[in-house]
Design a protein around this nucleic acid. Structure first.
Lengths: 198, 198
DNA sequence: CTAGAAACTTGGCAATGACAAGATTGGCTA
DNA sequence: TAGCCAATCTTGTCATTGCCAAGTTTCTAG
């Protein structure tokens, strides 16, 4: 019995709760989120959410997981639609990251505020997201566009940069209109700083 | 009547509440923070905190403000104790940033999860923190160590990088022992990527 | 068609944040 | 020094919330 796709008393309550929760945190912050309020919005009883989420934390975690899945997909799309050279693709991916953060600041905060322990369910989704950057870096090292070195280290470095730019955007310290320019400079600085010696 | 230094019924309740709050969020996360619990720990009535903080959010904001003040001071100390050349000082500052984040992950998350609107009280403390990086960048541009360009843009770029590395450390995605190496690489990459043409 | 599981409801409890009104204390002034 | 005033803290209260237990409805597998 596929729980997610079932149409029962309410329909697919789980997904609707997550949608409402995402709207709520963007409007009032994550710590204002009320399960009972979500239930009211969905027109179900105050204990109905408990069927799908054992507690409040579980709902937030599901939100984070969905966020990473969404972000990963967004980054992959951006990569595939960019021009084929490394710089263009890196730029497209990081710019998409920043745009994502500008659109869903509260969700992004939540995603990166959650401690990462190995047994958490969002681990895989998060790894699939970082992999987008890592893979491009790997490719760059292999084609010789980047100086030989530990690709994982490069990946972490660039991912950290992207994450920082995204967070600054999400918190309003970086106006979205200048963000794009900064992303371009970050990528070109990164590449220029790691160009193999001729 | 200097409110902060007074010893009254309790002593300086305000500071003690903030200390307890910081301990609490590092132990159980910010959304588990309970004003009544803090009051109990301090041995005062459940409504006593209200004298110093109108509501829960105000306490969190005070925590953020204190955090930025502390971080700024930490960065300035690191800068002053480093070797006088630009790279060493940048490295020292960002490494101190990352160490700060590793020591107080929950506080750092809170600091960078809070939306920055102009009228918020922690604005100045936050600005004083970013200024440490900005000033070094400015100095680098003026002495010719960095290519001519918009210093503010450089500053934002490097600050974003530092913030990203700090957040990754705080969330456990970057083991503190490798963090130092990565910081060194980030700084040298940044400088290498922005060296003026000879 | 029936049994059992999944989804939801009703009722209840302890804890919390916020508020109002009163008590205590310390300093400032007249 | 007497007394007022403001800051600090207390007691009492309320609505809301998260979580839990027990029961009810609906779906589905066999």
């Amino acid at each position: 019995m596929p729980a997610a796709a079932r149409a029962y008393h309410h329909g697919n309550l789980r997904a609707e709760l997550l949608d409402a929760a995402e709207r709520s945190i963007e409007k009032s912050g994550a710590d204002q989120l009320s399960l009972r309020e979500l239930a009211r919005e969905a027109g179900v009883s105050h204990a109905a959410p408990r069927t799908h989420f054992p507690d409040r934390q579980a709902l937030l975690q599901a939100l984070v997981e969905r966020g990473f899945t969404h972000l990963g997909a967004t980054l992959r799309t951006a990569r595939d639609q960019a021009a084929p050279d490394l710089e263009a693709r890196l730029h497209a991916v990081i710019a998409a990251f920043v745009t994502f953060a500008a659109t869903r600041p509260a969700l992004v905060n939540l995603m990166f505020a959650t401690k990462t322990t190995a047994d958490e369910p969002h681990q895989k989704a998060a790894a699939d997201t970082t992999a987008v950057v890592y893979d491009l870096i790997n490719e760059g090292v292999q084609t010789g566009a980047l100086a030989a070195g530990d690709p994982e280290r490069y990946g972490l470095l660039l991912y950290a940069w992207a994450q920082g730019l995204a967070t600054l955007t999400a918190t309003g310290n970086l106006p979205p209109e200048t963000a794009n320019t900064l992303v371009a400079e970050a990528v070109s600085t990164f590449l220029r700083g790691n160009t193999p010696l001729p």
